[in-house]
């Protein structure tokens, strides 16, 4: 092993609270105050990144609670990349296991929705399929076509109304309640802005079918099965208006 790597192993151990290994590189009168400066800077970098990526969690638990929890998470799961806008993929699940969050059982779900929103913000650019592009198609061709989701589309379903709670918190409301009904959230970036709305089971099934590469007819069938009362035509029109689709593949062979 090289001396440089030996030093870096010792330095990282010292950051983690075990400075003994660093002594070969420290002068006799070297205090460890400098080490604290580095430790604080690293912690601030991680915590600031998590605060930017999970703003709804932050708004619900407050600055002090959030920064303390985020600092603990960062020590267990430091960033894997210097591109910190992607940091925190494991944070929602970690919050779900974090004992002080036991009184806030919805927190992991809120973090999960923040994550979807952030992913939508930084996803690839791609054209959006318009209603006009579909207008001239024969019904049979359309039914057999496969709709591709826009790269920024993210959605997740929950057994309770977390999406409504998250949306209210995101809008700055402080009186939050958790509806008992099952809900899903749909995020999609359009013109540089992430739009989100709460969707029901029929829309969720429709989107899942598209994600799975199934033809439109099958997506419509899954939506109708999920909610027999829903108008699939208007559901489809609303999703097109949302700009959820990136393209339509008319080749029938799989």
């Amino acid at each position: 092993m090289s001396e440089l790597l030996d030093f870096q192993d010792a330095f990282v151990a010292a950051l983690d609270g075990a400075p003994e290994g660093l002594s070969p590189w420290l002068g006799p009168d070297a205090g460890l105050a400098g080490l604290t400066v580095y430790r604080n800077t690293i912690a601030k970098g991680c915590v600031d990144a998590l605060a930017a990526n999970f703003p709804t969690v932050l708004s619900m638990v407050g600055e002090e609670w959030f920064r303390a929890a985020a600092a603990l998470f960062a020590r267990e799961a430091p960033p894997a990349s210097a591109a910190l806008q992607g940091y925190g993929e494991a944070f929602p699940a970690w919050l779900g296991r974090f004992p002080p969050a036991e009184a806030l059982p919805y927190l992991a779900g809120v973090a999960h929705l923040d994550r979807l929103w952030t992913e939508a913000l930084f996803a690839a650019e791609a054209p959006t399929l318009s209603a006009e592009a579909l207008a001239g198609l024969a019904p049979q061709a359309l039914a057999e076509g496969r709709l591709a989701l826009h790269p920024s589309v993210r959605f997740a379903a929950f057994e309770a109304g977390l999406p409504s709670l998250w949306s209210a918190a995101r809008a700055g409301e402080t009186e939050l309640d958790l509806p008992a009904r099952a809900e899903a959230l749909l995020c999609r970036r359009r013109d540089g802005v992430v739009a989100h709305r709460v969707i029901g089971e029929a829309e969720t099934e429709f989107l899942r079918a598209c994600r799975d590469g199934q033809p439109l007819a099958q997506a419509a069938e899954r939506a109708a099965l999920a909610d027999p009362d829903v108008s699939v035509a208007s559901l489809f029109a609303a999703l097109i208006a949302d700009g959820v689709f990136g393209g339509l593949n008319l080749e029938t062979a799989r």
Binding site: E3, F7, Q8, D9, Y38, I42, P79
Partner: peptide, 25 residues
């Protein structure tokens, strides 16, 4: 400076002993 160590990124610019071996690396 360095910031990545064994797969973990420390968001800071960290010091090292300026040895001749470090220079080569």
């Amino acid at each position: 400076a360095w910031s990545t160590h064994r797969g973990a990124h420390q968001p800071d610019l960290l010091p090292f002993p300026r040895s001749r071996a470090a220079l080569v690396r």
